[in-house]
Design a protein around this nucleic acid. Structure first.
Length: 679
DNA sequence: CCGTGGTAATTTTTT
DNA sequence: ATTACCACGG
């Protein structure tokens, strides 16, 4: 590895291997490069690969970094542990969770399960689940867990009662998780810390193994992550964190910029290195991004600079409709590829994952290969969830949420009444619900017919549980689905042929993903590890397609942090979208939205295109949109503005007028007249 | 206990 | 616009 293509501060960061090190690195200053070179340098110094730990925030960033380290240091880099905080936590728990009273094999619940557990706990506490949004309750619980305290009610009738609800629900929620041998995402961070506190020997083993610890995107760590880091690096203090307070975009998840500002307090006697020279973007892009971020009140004074010159002007494009915005982006991508930009050097970024859809359609039409990162609409499909729930029940009978989900899917005559009775019985005897099912015939409250049907279901699950232990996961799944007639039932329930086809296809994609996992994992493949992996990285495993390289990337602004492309499109630069208006109740966070915009802009090396639409369809209604305030902050001389054509916004159309007239007439005439049919 | 038809609610970002 | 959930009849 050569150090010559690093600038002096970068080199210093790479060579400072021992003791605490804080690298304050602005966008494009070679942050990732410092980490990757540092790893390579350590390996060259004959540090064992297995002693090195590097953590990132997203799976995408982790895999990107893995690739770069591999290029730099070769095969021996394979031994380096390079993963997300959560994946690291899961690894620790896989070894030691039983010490905290959990079963050895545990499941990781997803957000849907979390909400189901919250709702059930609310019911147990006699809290109306319509008066309180389970999502909000979960947010409060999650925030509390991540900051290391139990949810507490507000002192004196301050604010709403959500804190009280969370306080009441939390113990039940945590108990329910334990009862089904599961942990949630937050536990993946919190439990290792607790483990390290309660079992110093375990901690020492990890601290001794991981002599060199590196953290990327340190500005986005929350309390739980900081605790974990302090535990890991407390002994040897060889901890290197890299971050930029201007790129803190996860405060909704409890990220504390303070962590980066207080680094010296947590790891005394360390060194601080600042990287302010930007090597990534043209001065045009950099100046524009700086103009946006400078409007933020609370930030450490810092200005990224570059010694390169020129660069194409930024384009700010307004389309009349979201459809045309997407078409424009797709066409421009095609043009850029024709100009010679490789597809994998082009990205489309947006604030909400929903914006990818229209672009996807247009790219497909134009025959451009693309890859959508994040936004797991696929796993939200009902059929997919059902199949996964089958896996969960088979892998872990104590998973009651999944059990309740599939016990009657497809309909097999086990209805709510039966399940109510079984649940009551299990509760009375203090056994898991599954045990109630296995002993259905002994339960007097259950009619014989119901007990028989339950017995058949139990037999089905147990038969397949045995079969799934013998490998051939995908094959056994196919047989299971055939046995329960999954495809046929899905088709029968579908409103149209096409929709039925989609359902069946989605299910076969699950099997393909399982098959790919099996192939990759070899003989140690198991349903539970497949499920836990799925939970940590909600993208389906794919067989690497031939054109794996050379695909345009579509992802959210959050996902793009730490990555870069020669050409970047940012979509939806509109008020309420970027900056996003917070969910009702939760206030929006304008400074963070601004940072998000800054992060997106600074992903671009050569070309940046900002698009918006004058209208957008929301809840079936077309609404006019106002341009994002961030567009107004761009220096005029750096931007070319393009309007793709105004849309007539004005008085309602004749058609609409007719409709309302008819409606009025109808109301006057009474109920007997025909309702008008607008088209 | 199952299917149907009507009504209500739906929209952040990641692990 | 689409989907989830409820009340009701078979």
């Amino acid at each position: 590895m050569k150090l010559s293509h690093l600038n002096p501060p970068q080199r210093e960061a790479v060579l400072t291997t021992d003791g605490p090190l804080l690298v304050l690195a602005g966008a494009g200053s070679g942050k990732t490069r410092v980490i990757t070179h540092r790893i390579a340098h350590l390996l060259e110094k004959k540090v064992q690969a297995r002693s090195i730990l590097a953590v990132t925030f997203t799976n995408k960033a982790a895999s990107e970094m893995k690739e770069r380290v591999l290029q730099l240091a070769g095969q021996k880099a394979l031994g380096v542990t390079l993963c997300t905080f959560h994946a690291f936590g899961a690894e620790v728990l896989r070894e030691h969770l039983s010490k905290l009273g959990w079963p050895k094999k545990f499941a990781i619940v997803d957000t849907g399960d979390q909400l189901a557990l919250i709702r059930r706990a609310m019911k147990d506490r006699k809290i109306d689940d319509r008066a309180f949004d389970a999502r909000k309750v979960l947010t409060i619980i999650s925030r509390a867990k991540n900051s290391g305290v139990d949810p507490q009610p507000k002192p004196e009738g301050q604010g709403d009662d959500y804190d009280l609800v969370a306080h009441l629900v939390f113990p039940l929620y945590q108990l329910a998780l334990k009862a089904q041998g599961a942990v949630d995402f937050d536990d993946l961070l919190v439990f290792p810390s607790r483990l390290f506190t309660e079992f110093p020997k375990v901690k020492q083993a990890y601290a001794a193994r991981f002599r060199y610890v590196m953290v990327d995107e340190y500005q986005d760590t929350n309390r739980a992550q900081l605790d974990l880091l302090v535990h890991l690096a407390g002994e040897h203090q060889n901890v290197c964190v890299v971050g930029d307070d201007d790129q803190c975009i996860y405060s909704w998840r409890g990220a504390e910029v303070r962590n980066i500002l207080d680094f010296e307090r947590h790891f005394p006697g360390g060194k601080e290195i600042r990287l302010e020279q930007n090597y990534r973007s043209t001065p045009v892009i950099l100046d524009a991004a700086n103009a946006v971020i400078e409007k933020n009140p609370e930030r450490r004074a810092k200005r990224m600079w570059t010694d390169t010159l020129g660069g194409a002007r930024i384009r700010s494009v307004c389309a009349p409709s979201e459809e045309e915005e997407a078409r424009f982006v797709a066409q421009e991508i095609k043009k850029a590829i024709a100009e010679g930009f490789p597809p994998d050097e082009i990205a489309v970024l947006y604030r909400v994952n929903g914006l990818s859809r229209a672009v996807e359609e247009n790219l497909r039409e134009l025959g451009v290969y693309y890859e959508v990162i994040g936004g797991s609409e696929f796993f939200d499909r009902r059929e997919v969830k059902d199949v996964i729930a089958y896996f969960r029940v088979i892998a872990n009978p104590k998973d009651e949420i999944s059990l309740l989900r599939i016990v009657n899917v497809p309909s097999r005559g086990i209805g709510d009444v039966t399940m109510e009775r079984l649940t009551a019985w299990a509760l009375k005897h203090e056994v898991p619900l599954w045990e109630g099912l296995t002993r259905a015939s002994e339960i007097e409250e259950l009619p014989q017919g119901a007990a028989e049907k339950v017995g058949e279901f139990v037999a089905l699950v147990e038969r397949y549980r045995k079969r799934f232990t013998k490998g051939k996961l995908a094959e056994v799944t196919r047989e299971l689905l055939a046995e329960i007639d999954f495809a046929q039932v899905a088709r029968a329930n579908a409103p149209s042929i096409a929709s039925g086809d989609r359902k069946v296809k989605a299910v076969s994609q699950v099997i393909e993903s399982l098959e790919a996992y099996e192939k990759k994992e070899g003989p140690k493949a198991s349903l539970l590890t497949y499920l836990n992996r799925l939970a940590l990285d909600m993208k389906s495993e794919e067989d690497e397609p031939e054109h794996q390289r050379g695909r345009v990337t579509l992802m959210s602004l959050h996902g793009s942090k730490g990555l870069e492309w020669r050409v970047v499109f940012m979509m939806g630069l509109e008020e309420d979208l970027l900056p996003h208006s917070g969910m009702q109740g939760e206030p929006a966070n304008p400074p963070e939205e601004r940072r998000l915009c800054y992060v997106g802009m600074t992903r671009a090396r050569e070309r940046l295109v900002l698009t918006r639409s004058a209208t957008r369809i929301k809840r079936g209604k077309e609404l006019p949109r106002t341009p994002s305030r961030f567009l107004a902050d761009l220096p005029e001389d750096l931007v070319d503005v393009l309007d793709l054509g105004a849309v007539p916004v004005g008085p309602p159309s004749a058609k609409e007028l007719n409709f309302f007239d008819a409606l009025r007439a109808k109301l006057k005439a009474g109920k007997d007249s025909e309702p008008p049919k607008p088209t």
